[in-house]
C-alpha cells in the first residue's frame, strides 16, 4: 500500500504544483488563492475589530497583540525610518505588513502549504502600490520637476557627466526598485514551497524505493521537511518585514531634502 502511495506521488516537483484546481465562477475566477486571500484579510479585519471594540486602558490579551503589531510597524518601521512624518504612513505600512505576513503564512499552514505570494501577480501588485506611493509623496512634496531632479541628478556631479549617469539613476530608482520588491517576495515564497515539496514528496519516493536503506532515509527527509517548515515561518515574517521596511526607505528618500 505504501508502495502504491509512493507511485502516486508526482515527482519531481514542477511548476504545475503551484496551480491549484479552480473552485467556481465564470472563467473559474474564484480559485483557492482567492479564498486564501479573502480568509487572510477577513481574519485580520475581524481580529482588529474585536480587539479594539472595547479598548481598555489596561489592555486585554487580544488588544495587547493588536497594539503590539501596529506599534511595531508604527514605531519600529515608520517612525524609525521616515521620522516624525512617518506616522501618517503607519496605517498603510501596518496593513501592508499584516497582509503580506498572513498571506505568507498560508505557506506553512498544514493542509494548505501554498502561499498566494508564490504567484508573481500578488507581489507585483503590492510592489506597484508602493511604487506609486513613493513617487506620489515625492511629487507632492517637491513638485514633479524638482522631485525628478532630486532623484536623477547626484549633487555636485559635473555637467558633462550627467548624460552618462542619469540613465543609471533612472534605472536604479524607477525600474529596479519595484522589480526587486516584487521579485524578492515572490522568489522567497516560491523557493520555500519548492523546498517543502522536495523534502515531503522526496520522503515518499525514498519510502517507495526497493532499497531497504533508502526507505529508512525517508524519515530523515520528513524531519528536514519539519525543520524547513519552521524556517519558512521565519522567512514568511521576515519577508513581510523587509517589504515594508524597503517601502518606507523609498518613501523616506522621496521626501528627503538632501541625499
Amino acid at each position: 500500500m505504501v508502495r502504491g502511495l509512493a507511485a502516486e506521488v508526482p515527482w519531481p516537483p514542477s511548476v504545475d504544483d503551484f496551480f491549484l484546481p479552480p473552485i467556481a465562477g465564470p472563467d473559474n475566477w474564484f480559485t483557492k488563492f482567492t479564498l486564501f486571500v479573502w480568509v487572510a484579510v477577513a481574519i485580520t479585519i475581524i481580529f482588529f475589530l474585536v480587539a479594539y471594540r472595547n479598548p481598555k486602558l489596561v489592555p486585554t490579551k487580544s488588544q495587547w497583540i493588536a497594539e503590539s503589531a501596529y506599534g511595531f510597524v508604527r514605531d519600529g518601521i515608520a517612525k524609525d525610518i521616515i521620522g516624525a512624518e512617518g506616522i501618517k504612513f503607519a496605517p498603510y505600512l501596518a496593513s501592508l505588513f499584516l497582509f503580506i505576513a498572513f498571506n505568507n503564512l498560508w505557506g506553512i499552514i498544514p493542509g494548505v502549504q501554498l502561499s498566494p505570494n508564490t504567484h508573481i501577480a500578488f507581489p507585483a501588485f503590492l510592489a506597484i502600490i508602493s511604487y506609486v506611493l513613493f513617487i506620489w509623496v515625492g511629487v507632492k512634496r517637491f513638485g514633479f520637476a524638482k522631485y525628478i531632479k532630486n532623484q536623477l541628478i547626484p549633487p555636485g556631479a559635473p555637467a558633462w557627466l550627467l548624460p552618462l549617469v542619469i540613465p543609471l539613476e533612472f534605472a536604479s530608482t524607477f525600474l529596479f526598485r519595484p522589480l526587486t520588491l516584487a521579485l524578492r517576495l515572490f522568489a522567497n515564497m516560491f523557493a520555500g514551497h519548492v523546498i517543502l515539496l522536495v523534502f515531503t514528496l522526496g520522503g515518499f519516493v525514498l519510502l517507495g524505493s526497493d532499497n531497504f536503506a533508502l526507505a529508512g532515509i525517508s524519515i530523515v527527509s520528513w524531519a528536514i521537511a519539519i525543520v524547513m517548515t519552521i524556517f519558512e515561518l521565519l522567512v514568511a515574517l521576515l519577508q513581510a518585514y523587509v517589504f515594508v521596511l524597503l517601502t518606507s526607505v523609498y518613501v523616506q528618500t522621496s521626501i528627503a531634502e538632501e541625499h
Partner: peptide, 20 residues
C-alpha cells in the same frame, strides 16, 4: 535598514551601469 537599502542600491548601480 539604511545598510540593507544601500547594498541593494549599490548593486543596482553597478549592474545597471554594465547593462545600459
Amino acid at each position: 535598514a539604511r545598510g540593507a537599502d544601500q547594498a541593494y542600491t549599490a548593486l543596482g548601480y553597478l549592474i545597471s551601469g554594465m547593462l545600459i
